[in-house]
Design a protein around this nucleic acid. Structure first.
Length: 425
RNA sequence: GUGGGCGUAGCUCAGUUGGUUAGAGCGCCGGGUUGUGGUCCCGGAGGCCGGGGGUUCGAAUCCCCUCGCUCACCCCA
């Protein structure tokens, strides 16, 4: 066995018990918030037909696909959950009662270079609302996100949401610099999405690159970059067409967010477009206000994806939040818990003759739903108590000769040190 | 892909004018007597010093190569 084979492949993680307890803590919150919002959990295979993920917009996520040929099939590890969920929806499209409220927690794979906060696999909480064209769906999604942050113990001021509308940007551009070249809109969004990362000048260069996918005139590109600097709806309105439906939708969304009491946690930001090609309307992302991490979640409306995959025309809103970035943020804020093992009882036979009784006791306690470890050896009692301490057990139940004769166990409460007898059955 | 930093015990790390049997803390195991933990005291196990080659009487230490980790840049939902 080579040394390499004894390590997890680069960008992947092993989860030891303490790591998995933390992950489970996080997933428990994903599930609990999903439950409170009445989302139903679904799951899909981690391997899909590569075709499901391929789109034409120069997206990073597609370039980073883990894919391979097996016999005559071209397969891929999923890079995101949304296409799989869309596929599942299509399969049952005829019998669905809309709107559908689904969520999934799944591992996604992207072959990318490792840096801080970026691994090649990560788990994502994915929430989708399908069949609702109104921004009431977006409001649900955003409320679920802030509820999750609160549940995780993230301070209210530590994380915020940025919201924009691709539909608004499209309205503005369709009547202007992209007139007659609507196909350039998706690649334009991919470029614009990099604004926070590579800066306005670099975006300008890429938009104006004659050999690039967008190929705007330099002045037009400059106009686009300027338009993206809007940070309020009123500012954005000045560039929008009169009676813009997209602008009206944004205004209505903020009204709804206000009703949920979270409008003050959401900013309008014209530069947010998200990098995925399939978004068509409202888009949003969560970010840490300290600005040290990449976006911690993102999503938006994708009204055309399901139809483009061969399904019916179904409006949809969804978002994903990964485990890696949010864990880093929690760590930086000192909010990562260290969940214990949750063992209730350690049952200790003091000698082998007492073992059958101890087993009977352990079985009874387990039958009552308690988490019980049975000491498998018969070392000294001192060691057993130290072990109980280490695993965080609340009680130690000792079965010795004297107790056995009376049909009881001596129960020691680890926290108080108090002891009493308890019948074995 | 470019550049920097780092690979020494399970973990976090000391350890250079090159010099005996390579260290600490934590963790682990055992002991401090007979059936009672967390503290304390004592003891112990555990390391081809990432790998290979070279220089040297002698290399964890210097040189070269290589692998791995990591950070920055490049790139990038």
């Amino acid at each position: 066995m080579s040394k390499d084979a004894l390590r997890p492949p680069r960008g992947t993680r092993d989860f030891y018990p303490e790591d998995l307890r933390l992950r489970s803590w996080l997933f428990d919150h994903f599930r609990e918030i999903s439950r409170r919002f009445a989302f139903e959990e679904v799951d899909a295979p981690i391997v899909e037909h590569a075709e499901l993920f391929i789109r034409k917009a120069g997206e990073e996520i597609v370039d980073q696909l883990y894919h391979f040929e097996l016999h005559d099939r071209h397969l891929a590890l999923r890079a995101e959950l949304t296409p799989s969920l869309a596929r599942m929806l299509i399969a049952r499209a005829g019998g669905l009662r809309l709107p559908v409220r689904w969520f999934a927690i799944g591992q996604n794979w992207r072959y990318e270079r490792m840096t801080r906060g970026r691994t090649r696999e990560h788990y994502q909480w994915n929430v989708e609302i399908v069949g609702e064209p109104d921004v009431t769906a977006e409001a649900e999604a955003l409320a679920a996100l802030t509820s999750l942050w609160d549940a995780l113990g993230l301070p209210r001021e530590a994380v915020r949401l940025r919201v924009n509308s691709r539909a608004l940007l499209e309205e503005v551009l369709r009547g202007g610099v992209l007139r007659g070249r609507e196909e350039a809109f998706a690649p334009l969004c991919v470029v614009v999405d990099k604004l926070h990362k590579i800066g306005a000048d670099a975006v300008l260069d890429q938009l104006a690159d004659p050999a690039g996918p967008v190929g705007l005139a330099r002045d037009d590109a400059r106009w686009v970059v300027d338009a993206l600097s809007a940070r309020s709806l009123d500012e954005a309105a000045s560039a929008a067409p009169p009676d813009s439906p997209a602008l009206a939708a944004l205004r209505r969304l903020f009204e709804l967010l206000d009703a949920y009491g979270i409008a003050d946690r959401v900013d309008f930001d014209a530069s947010v477009v998200r990098g995925l090609a399939y978004y068509t309307g409202i888009v949003f992302e969560g970010f840490d206000t300290a600005g040290t991490l990449r976006s911690i979640c993102g999503g938006g409306r994708y009204d055309a994806l399901i139809e483009s995959l061969g399904g019916p025309s179904l409006p949809a809103v969804g978002f994903g939040m990964g485990d890696v970035v949010v864990s880093e943020l929690l760590g930086e804020l000192g909010r990562l818990p260290s969940p214990g093992r949750g063992v209730d009882d350690l049952v200790v036979p003091l000698d082998d003759a007492r073992r059958p009784l101890a087993m009977r006791l352990a079985a009874r306690l387990r039958g009552e739903g308690r988490s019980v470890e049975l000491a498998l050896g018969t070392g000294r009692l001192k060691r057993a108590l130290a072990h109980a301490n280490r695993i965080g057990a609340a009680r130690v139940l000792i079965v010795g000769e004297d107790e056995a004769a009376r049909g009881v166990a001596k129960v020691r409460d680890l926290a108080s040190g108090e002891e009493h007898d308890e019948k074995i059955w």
